[in-house]
Design a protein around this nucleic acid. Sequence first.
RNA 1: GGUCGCUUAGCUCAGCUGGAUAGAGUGUCGCCCUCCGAAGGCGAAGGUCAUAGGUUCGAAUCCUAUAGCGACCGCCA
Length: 581
Amino acid sequence: MNIYADIRALVTQELDALATEGLLPEGLSFDNVAVEPPRDPLHGDMATNAAMVLAKPAKKKPRDIAEALAERLAADPRIVTADVAGPGFLNLRLAPSVWADVVRAVLAEGDDFGRSQMGQGKRINVEYVSANPTGPLHVGHTRGAVFGDALASLLAFAGHEVTREYYINDGGGQVDTLARSVYLRYLEAHGQEVAFPDGTYPGDYLIATGQALKEKVGDAYVDQPESVWLQEVRNFATEAMMALIREDLAALGVKMDKFYSEKSLYGTGRIEAALKALEDKGLIYEGVLEPPKGKKPEDWEPREQTLFKSTEHGDDVDRPVKKSDGSWTYFAPDIAYHFDKVERGFDALIDVFGADHGGYVKRMKAAVSALSDGKVPLDIKLTQLVKLYKNGEPFKMSKRAGTFVTLRDVVDQVGPDVTRFVMLTRKNDAPLDFDFDKVLEQSKDNPVFYVQYAHARIKSVLRKAQAAGIAIDDATLGAADLSGMTNAAEITLAAKVAEWPRLLEIAARTNEPHRIAFYLYELAGDLHALWNRGNDEPELRFLQEDNPATSQAKIALARAVSVVISTGLGILGVTPMEEMR
RNA sequence: GGUCGCUUAGCUCAGCUGGAUAGAGUGUCGCCCUCCGAAGGCGAAGGUCAUAGGUUCGAAUCCUAUAGCGACCGCCA
């Protein structure tokens, strides 16, 4: 049940009726007609801009349309009053029974309340994390992992068929560097003194990998040239790093549907096929790029390369797919990978990148646009930097990696639930402050705590009711007489619950899971407000020990809130707490 | 130099395909509680939505320019 959609359907139905009566022209588009909560609750429960939106195309005064519409709407039993306000807003006040219906709907639908069909079963591929397999995940990856995972869940809840995918960059020079670094650790495991030159990975996390390599191959590679061991060590090391990364993801509660190997694109004709597809569209040519404008690199010289004419699909300059020595640039396999995604039949693609890949967005979109003839949209979401703090002081230390803070450093300290929720308390494209102490603080300005506390409070009420011998199963609560739910704080809370399906669709449409976190915070705030009223007005308390029927009615509302919190947290990948300690 | 993103209350940030007097938390100030569901409650003050133009009946929201901050910018991925 989505009350906003229901009322909007009513509005458009009555607009049609007005058209039939001749008060509006036939065939008007109602696409821009919105039914939403008014900014000021004093204005009513819902507002519609229908009259203002239609005034121009209908060539009528907004207020005339609004008044005619108001009269028709007021005839509906769900609507108590319909008032024209301001320039032509129509404010609707709903019958209390509407909110009771919402509560009953939540209890009946359970975790499915708010589930939407807006996705129409469209297949969406969400690619996220995709960190190079050269070491443990760090905080930046953590944000991308949380964001991508929540986004995928959100889209699935909104009726899409979602594939969560990780692209393993195991085909480029960085895995050779990894192999050489592991080789040094391997020599070290054999008792040799080693130094880590610039361009190798000195992190401690490779010590175990070098040791494991020794256990596998003994001294077979000691003092041997690269030609003997490079390929084997590369495979060994990459697998070890991916195992590490999978563990990191598991610690955060992220589970991918598919890991896609860049290496699998080489030597299989996949890259050639993708570039052939572009060539057939006349988008590949041999040419020389202009030097970057402004400050010129010192060693700049013109070079002829194989280029992709990405400018025809919105990019600023054409991009090389082959280096001057004839080998592929990193862009070429990425094109092939996205070609593969298009060929797998996805209706839409989403890539979640770190902010340092910002310069990469246009060319990737250009490639997908070209490869799919503009049929498959690619949305690229960038996650901005995470700034770490401890006690308000900038924090930069890692025992594991030496140079960066890892996902494990964060998750081990504050747990996966807090990590995930906090990472979603900002828009993805805004920098995020993460303070190890504040996120664990038990106070109102900590959103994680505040939302979890609301859920735990409701669970506590349910436990106490049960202990008092009151039946609290959803069927019983759903059958309770809710006509007594008339207090303003109760209505506010129920109305906030009713917003959930609408909010979910907005979040899904904009690919912005953070909206759920903010909504849950507001919902929790409304619950706490009602709870606090119970201090002064005992009749507002959820549990009325001497009156089971009234208790059930009040607990029905609380239970509905807990269902929505639980569902919302579930989408964010956060486990709702049964009690706080 | 170019591209992209950001700029909203003292601070940290929301702000719905453009809509009414721009919201929340925190901080500040006042009141309440201190035996009960107070890891608080009620209320107040606090804004040139970076700046300047433009589009519109209507702009924090869309467009243009400028400033500041950040990321990125041909053989690293």
